[in-house]
């Protein structure tokens, strides 16, 4: 840390300029790991450097601190399940003797992999408030690219320490094919562009979506499903399932209206309404298929993590 100070200690009055030249976060992390709080245990840093410069001005009992920390090319992983790459942050912060904080900056994240790949965001932010608790973080509107689609968020303002956010997320150009590829179901194929809006509420680490809706585009799409033997067997025993399976062998839909609810514990409820026809069934008679699906997405997410983590020993134990 380089310091350049000229301060008249009697008053005191003066100014200290400081500069922290760039250093590797990875080395710092392994050096200071024991000092870090337990909650940061799962954090591992692969690369990236940080630097900072600024000054401290003192005038009797008032002081004013200005600091500009920078993060560049940071890549890290969290609990071996989430990998974040290409993070850079530039920010200018100011603090005074009554701990009033103001600041602004921009964050740029290239890519996050956590069972699903997310590109972005690039977002500008402003900070103000009173340390330690009353901090307001204001984010500019930003978008993320997921499954070749776009998820766009409006400007948001919240307290980063206990975030409570109530916003509407816009979804565009999400291809059904990519969604289905996320959790490959043997024999299931689908395509069609979806878009819509997901009202999201975040309270601390609890995330909730109420009455999200995705609609297919004007071109509609197709769903083809060749049931596995077990599912086909189920079809023989249940007429409702049989009809759905017949309809789904080659369902050309002109409308897919997907209602979606998600609860903090991970339970998700999909209400899919498909209007279309199947050229190979009932001479292409119009079909109105209502499919209600209930699934725990946190379990799904864990399964996506597990598929690459579970050792053979555990796998074999389950095959027997």
């Amino acid at each position: 840390l380089n310091l350049k100070a000229n301060v008249d200690l009697s008053k005191p009055h003066g100014r200290i300029n400081f500069n922290l030249p760039a250093f590797s976060l990875q080395q710092a992390m392994s050096l200071y790991a024991p000092l870090l709080p337990a909650s940061l245990k799962p954090l591992q840093i692969q690369s990236g450097s940080t630097e900072m410069n600024g000054w401290l001005a003192i005038n009797y009992q008032d002081w004013h601190l200005k600091a500009s920390p920078r993060l560049s090319d940071l890549s890290l992983s969290w609990d071996e399940t989430t990998q974040v790459q290409g993070v850079s942050l530039t920010t200018d912060l100011e603090l005074n003797q009554s701990f009033n904080l103001t600041g602004q900056g921009s964050l740029d994240v290239q890519q996050t992999d956590s069972g699903i790949r997310i590109y972005g965001p690039r977002v500008d932010f402003k900070l103000n408030g009173q340390l330690p608790e009353e901090i307001q973080l204001s984010l500019s509107p930003f978008s993320l690219s997921v499954l070749d689609g776009i998820i766009a968020l409006p400007a948001l303002t919240f307290n980063p320490l206990h975030p409570t956010i109530d916003t509407r997320v816009a979804v565009a150009a999400l291809d059904l094919q990519d969604i289905l590829a996320l959790y490959p179901q043997e024999g299931l194929y689908g395509s069609g562009m979806l878009g819509g809006e997901l009202p999201i509420r975040i309270d601390g680490d609890r995330v909730e979506i109420n009455n999200g809706q995705l609609l297919s585009s004007a071109e509609g799409g197709v769903i083809r499903y060749q049931p596995t033997p077990e599912i086909a067997l189920m079809g023989q025993q249940n007429p409702g399932v049989k009809m759905a399976l017949n309809a789904l062998t080659d369902l050309r839909f002109e409308l897919l209206d997907l209602g979606f609810d998600y609860q903090p514990d991970g339970d998700a409820f999909f209400r899919a309404r498909l209007k279309g026809y199947n050229p190979d069934w009932q001479q292409g008679r119009p079909i109105d298929l209502n499919l209600n699906i209930e699934e725990n997405l946190l379990d799904l997410w864990r399964t996506l993590q597990l598929s690459n983590q579970v050792t053979d020993t555990i796998d074999r134990r389950f095959q027997r």
Partner: peptide, 10 residues
């Protein structure tokens, strides 16, 4: 149209 209703729990 033929109306089909199906509930699935995964």
């Amino acid at each position: 149209p033929i109306t089909i209703n199906l509930n699935v729990k995964i």
